[in-house]
Write a protein that binds this DNA or RNA. Structure first.
Length: 806
RNA sequence: GCCCAGGUGGUGGAAUGGCAGACACGUACGACUCAAAAUCGUAUGCCGCAAGGCGUGAGGGUUCAAGUCCCUCCCUGGGCACCA
């Protein structure tokens, strides 16, 4: 009798829904377990293999936790604002509101067909006014805490998406959505001060996160300890510095090399770059500043490109020895990092060295290796001992870094500081499909936040949302939206027309799931206290330095505002791997997309999900292969045959041992997301029953263990075996250590580390007995002929290694 | 360039320092069948008729014993990239 997957799956999905099996009672006294997957954005209208690969195994884990007695919450929702949804709408000539409603409806049906136990009563859709009202409220909380500010700055601009991008959304100088080259624009934009949280975001105490992800965030935050040093600018009758007492502050991590500084470099955007230029050099400097402004990031940071720069004519004074050094402007110095100015030490820095060589600037060695000598013709960039450095000579780099700063600190010419690569989070977007920024710009009062009682600031429907290439938000062309009154002075004012980065929506959605219908608050603090932080969060590693960082930032801000009692949102984080086709990422443009639908129709969702889990370790992903799925299909059919076969009277001790080994293995492997080996052990157990069959009692245990992996099959089998609905309300089987023990084992006999015999032996035999047994083996005897026995290594109940020599 | 992760049969992959290749795909042969498919059974790392030998990217080392630990190098994937 073949297992009829489609019918049976439909049957149980209906029963589960009717009986409300997947509706989590948030007020239950049972221990809570919050299992969450990163919610999808409904930009296409279908679930692809990546969704399945992410969601199905996570659901299996959640089902397992449920059987472990936890009150599991597994919610689902849609991240429906943003560029992908908007671009889809533009392409299909539909209003995004319509297209996402359609796509969500389709995806909901497909998600239900996976058989996952999502609690749809807690669904969240971020583009609904009921939701984005609170996203805007979040903005106001940050604003209140002085963590949101508007500033004119050079920002990343994607000419194709017609919007600015956060630093995190630029990859290799291109837009992470459309891969167009990103250019720079000077715009006034809203930022969040995530940099202020740099140090706290570096802490991962107690979090079960992949080391790799923590490292990626640490590298992205890029904390460096160093010092700022002030170089006074030499007054020159020819420049604008004269009489102003201006100074250049540089940032360095290598204060120990200060005596080797032979020039100072300003970034082209540095405010002093023009001022310091003398009359003679002014034209040249101006031209250089112009030319760098025209270049994009790629051109500016290209490795092959030679460094360029110009001498300003100005000089700065090295505070440690009063030496006058020339001031240059060069675009190898970044305006956005440190102070936008550096002291150049060509002898001990690769970049300064290359620049000094090109422009024939002096190179002065002030650090020597502790042992040996430095290589000729290249900079020595490691720590060492100081040379020709006045009273600091002979100190180690480490000591000198402390001493020199202390010395200059007394004269107020230096101080210890910390720099971060992390930049503040730019959240303004010049696009239509997002939550409007709740700010009113009043000609009298300036930026005024929209009062909380006036939220949400509704995104108008009737707007020509297609970008017109003027770099302005489409909302700017909607006077009904723009024209408003200032909440303070009641005079006429304009609304901010930019919308918020979608990452704002996803930075707090996990709080909303536990109280999704609340129209008085973003969430009920009692519910959040009970249900968060999230026990398990599963999603792709590509979010390491975006969503995951932003969500941590938001959580810390809400914690500081005493709105929530925890400051880390995700206790355990797991990344799924990527499914490829012929080694390549699946994409519509490559035409190598594998659709789950036909496989689900043919084999059922149980088989499909189990195959995805069986392919390899969950975190590794893998290459899709049509053929392998038959292995799982056979397993399911044979399982079904076993269920329906006559129950054996009694199981052999070996089969009982095998059963308990399987329970143990599956339990252990599921905990660490090694679903592939868990399934393999169930296959072994099934293989062991082909001759003997299985007793009813054992079958039930077997089916329970299988349940998280093949929920429909298990529920049907549970019924077939005469047990009461639902298998998911039963308790996960325990394995019995006593039953795992065997009276005999196979003694492995090695000679000089090579296996020469395997002897059945009784558990607990002594070394002497083992040697005796080994010597009786003909194979061992041949190997020992003419050799001297030197010693034996005996591993009880496992192995005997005989070491022999001539 | 820097920082991670990884390299195991024809394929996906498995192995707390203790039998390399579990489990599965594929392949071959057999059973069933008029036949095919499906199913079931047997075999399947490589060389060799065999005894045996060789095998976890390469080369060294530690150890009674190394896929696993250490060193050097090569390759693949991911992240960062003029961050001073």
């Amino acid at each position: 009798m073949k297992y009829q997957a489609p019918e049976i799956e439909r049957k149980w999905q209906k029963v589960w829904e009717e009986r409300g099996l997947h509706t989590t009672d948030l007020n239950s006294k049972k221990t809570k377990y919050y299992a969450l997957v990163m919610f999808p954005y409904p930009s296409g209208d279908k679930l692809h293999i990546g969704h399945w690969y992410n969601y199905a195994p996570t659901d299996s884990f959640a089902r397992y936790m449920r059987m472990r007695g936890m009150n599991v919450l597994e919610p689902m929702g849609f991240d429906s604002f943003g560029l992908p949804a908007e671009n889809y709408a533009i392409k299909h000539g539909v209003h995004p509101k319509k297209s996402i409603a359609h796509n969500i409806a389709t995806m909901e049906q497909q998600l239900k067909a996976t058989g996952a136990m999502y609690d749809w009563s807690k669904e969240v859709v971020t583009s609904s006014p009921e939701y984005y009202k609170w996203t805007q409220w979040m903005f106001l909380q940050l604003y209140k805490r002085d963590l949101a500010y508007r500033k004119q700055a050079p920002v990343n601009w994607c000419p194709s998406c017609q919007t600015v991008l956060a630093n995190e959304q630029v990859q290799d100088g291109t837009c992470d959505r459309c891969h167009s080259q990103v250019t720079k624009r000077d715009l006034t934009q809203w930022f969040f001060s995530i940099r202020q949280y740099g140090d706290r975001l570096l802490e991962f105490g107690g979090l079960q996160w992949p080391e790799k992800t923590k490292l990626m965030q640490q590298n992205w935050i890029g904390r460096s300890e160093g010092a700022q040093i002030d170089f006074e600018l030499e007054a020159d009758k020819d420049n604008e510095i004269r009489g102003t007492g201006e100074k250049v502050t540089v940032f360095t991590t290598r204060i120990d090399t200060l005596f080797g500084c032979t020039y100072v470099v300003l970034a082209p955007e540095h405010p002093l770059a023009q001022k310091v230029a003398t009359k003679k050099h002014r034209t040249e400097v101006q031209e250089y500043l112009e030319s760098t402004r025209r270049k994009n990031d790629i051109e500016r940071s290209s490795e092959e490109r030679e460094k360029t720069g110009v001498f300003t004519g100005g000089f700065a004074v090295n505070p440690v020895n009063g030496e006058k050094v020339p001031v240059w402007v060069a675009d190898y110095v970044l305006a956005s990092y440190g102070t936008g100015a550096v002291m150049a030490v060509p002898a001990h820095d690769e970049r300064d060295f290359a620049f000094a060589k090109k422009y024939k600037l002096p190179i002065r060695t002030v650090i020597k290796p502790r042992v040996g000598i430095a290589k000729e013709g290249e900079p020595f960039t490691e720590n060492g001992l100081l040379l020709d450095s006045g009273e600091f000579t002979d100190l180690s780099s480490e000591e000198a870094r402390m001493e020199i700063v202390k010395f200059l600190e007394e004269q107020k010419k230096a101080r210890f500081t910390v720099s971060y690569k992390l930049r503040d989070w730019l959240i303004s977007r010049q696009r239509y499909w997002g939550a409007p920024i709740p700010i009113i710009i009043c000609p009298k009062c300036g930026d005024v936040p929209v009062p909380e009682k006036d939220l949400p600031v509704i995104l108008p429907d009737d707007v020509d949302f297609e970008p017109k290439g003027d770099g302005k938000s489409p909302l700017a062309s909607c006077p009904e939206f723009v024209k408003t009154r200032c909440p303070k002075c009641k005079g006429p004012a304009n609304r901010e027309v930019d919308t918020m980065d979608t990452f704002m929506c996803s930075s707090w959605y996990f709080l909303r799931y536990v109280d999704p219908q609340n129209d008085k608050a973003a969430f009920d603090p009692k519910m959040v206290k009970k249900w968060l932080p999230i026990d398990l969060y599963v999603g792709g590693p590509e979010h390491a330095c975006m969503h995951l960082l932003y969500a941590r930032f938001f959580t810390k801000v809400l914690y500081d505002a005493k709105l929530i009692p925890f400051d880390e949102p995700f206790t355990r984080l797991v990344h799924q791997g990527m499914i490829t086709k012929d080694g390549a990422k699946m994409s519509k443009s490559k035409g190598n997309v594998v659709s789950p639908d036909s496989f689900v129709t043919q084999y059922g969702s149980d088989v499909f999900r189990m195959y995805l889990m069986f392919m390899g370790p969950f975190t590794e992903g893998g290459d899709w292969n049509d053929r392998g799925i038959t292995g799982i299909a056979r397993f399911v059919d044979r399982m079904w045959t076993l269920i329906n076969a006559l129950h054996a009277e009694k199981d052999s001790p070996e089969l009982v041992r095998e059963l308990h080994q399987t329970i143990k293995k599956v339990t252990e492997q599921i905990e660490v997301f090694h679903f592939n080996t868990a399934i393999a052990s169930m296959m072994e157990l099934l293989n062991a029953t082909t001759q003997s069959g299985m007793s009813l009692k054992s079958k039930k245990l077997f089916v329970q263990v299988l349940a998280p992996f093949a929920p429909h099959l298990a529920e049907e089998a549970w019924e077939k075996l005469g047990a009461e609905f639902s298998i998911f309300e039963t308790t996960w089987p325990k394995f019995d250590y006593k039953l795992l023990q065997s009276a005999t084992f196979e003694l492995v006999v090695q000679i000089n580390g090579k296996v020469r015999a395997k002897i059945p032996a009784e558990v607990g035999i002594t070394k002497e007995e083992a040697i005796e047994a080994a010597l009786s083996q003909p194979g061992v005897q041949t190997q020992l002929k003419g050799k001297k026995r030197l010693k034996e290594i005996f591993v009880p109940d496992k192995l005997l290694n005989m070491v022999v020599g001539e």
